[in-house]
Design a protein around this nucleic acid. Structure first.
Lengths: 225, 225
DNA sequence: AACGATTCGATATATTTATATTGATAATAA
DNA sequence: TTATTATCAATATAAATATATCGAATCGTT
């Protein structure tokens, strides 16, 4: 049954690529491109055409032989699939350097995401605004979650405090957590956690590099580290 | 042949989990734990024991029945595997909000990573210091790469400028790029790119949430979006 | 000293994901 | 109008990853 595939669970690797397709395709649309083929998408993004095609088949978009996908149609299919149309408000806890960077990250808005407010305990920042977003005392978090029906939280506090903040979020009715602290949060499985671990991430790049540059050059190099 | 497995290519999913093991195990070590089993690691990190065991078998560490791994030994095995002992210096381009956040991220140092300097074209920041790291004019990037033998770069500039900066990095001898701009960089395949796409990342969390909360509640809910 | 419980390591199976192949369809050109 | 080519869609195969199983080793206990 065609057209029903998008009801199915999208494979995680596909889901991870989808926003990246969207970003690339948006740029192409701004450049005036109207139709686009899997082959050209794949080339620009360092993938292979079959994979792009298979990924896009999880959206409602259909391509046509010889011309590919109509770009506008494909974009809106991706928007539907990824839910960029329904606006989602989030609260951020921890207005330190990473928190501040996120508050300044205006790109979220294009994807239906907004950070409604930040919370902190540091008197130096509480009461100020960062990029037009208020920094409120942490004590107000719980009640505002209820009042504003906010269901998503961003944790930008140090590792030691992260579990406590997660507990507060859970108790306040938060259902999805974007966690920048380098610890595995313990939350009920009604709550979804998405970890962003910068240190882990960069350390992967370095390891990949070392692996590549040891395999070929000297066969004994492996022993040295 | 035991002990040779760590010469093999580590599967990417395993490699991604390794720094997270390391972070968790470091915390346990600070708490005074001396021995630890796969089961307890798995429980704390939301995994299953077999997977943890298989992952750790890519390091040089060996566990003992009934007691598990000696924590100190396991940590140093992970350090060796991930290369945390050899210090790596990086250059950052784009001292905006994300760039600044990374410059303040002192945790990198514990993992053998240092940001030696930042580069920008904005006269308001060039010449200043951020967290004791100098912000230099972009024009000096290339020569300093050669002089200081820096092989890793971090791109924190807007999407429109990212490809140009990547070209500059490649021309300056950079071999690994940590890219925060939401575009797929075009670089020679001698250069390794690791993308950090915050917008894509959060959009995955939201989609996962929506998928979960539509499958069960109303069977017709799927049609509405 | 023998037994049971626990945990690792290795092997085997299952699942997921990626890649290749084939056939059908639409646009273009002869 | 017919042939040709580019492209998608669907199916089939291959590869990678995750999970389960089983035997051996160690520690604590009886």
């Amino acid at each position: 049954m065609p057209g029903e595939k998008n009801l199915l669970q999208i494979p995680l690797p596909t889901l991870k690529r989808m926003p990246v397709y969207y970003q690339y395709l948006s740029r192409q649309a701004r450049k005036g491109v109207t139709d686009i083929s899997c082959a050209s998408i794949a080339k620009a993004m360092g993938l292979v055409a079959v994979q792009v095609r298979k990924d896009l088949q999880y959206t409602a978009a259909v391509g046509r032989p010889k011309t590919g996908y109509h770009l506008k149609e494909l974009l809106s299919a991706l928007e539907d699939t990824l839910g960029y149309n329904n606006k989602t408000e989030m609260f951020l806890i921890g207005a330190g350097s990473i928190g501040t960077a996120l508050l300044f990250h205006n790109q979220f808005r294009d994807y239906g995401i907004g950070i409604a407010a930040a919370f902190d305990i540091n008197p130096a920042v509480v009461g100020t605004e960062i990029n037009n977003k208020p920094v409120l005392p942490l004590s107000k978090f719980s009640s505002l979650c209820g009042r504003m029906h906010v269901k998503f939280g961003i944790i930008c506090v140090p590792a030691e405090e992260a579990q406590g903040i997660a507990d507060l979020m859970v108790a306040s009715g938060i259902l999805g957590i974007w966690n920048f602290a380098p610890i595995t949060l313990d939350v009920p499985d009604t709550v979804l956690v998405h970890n962003e671990n910068l240190t882990a991430s960069i350390s992967i790049l370095l390891k990949k590099f070392k692996t590549r540059n040891s395999g070929s050059e000297r066969e004994s190099a492996c022993r040295t580290s």
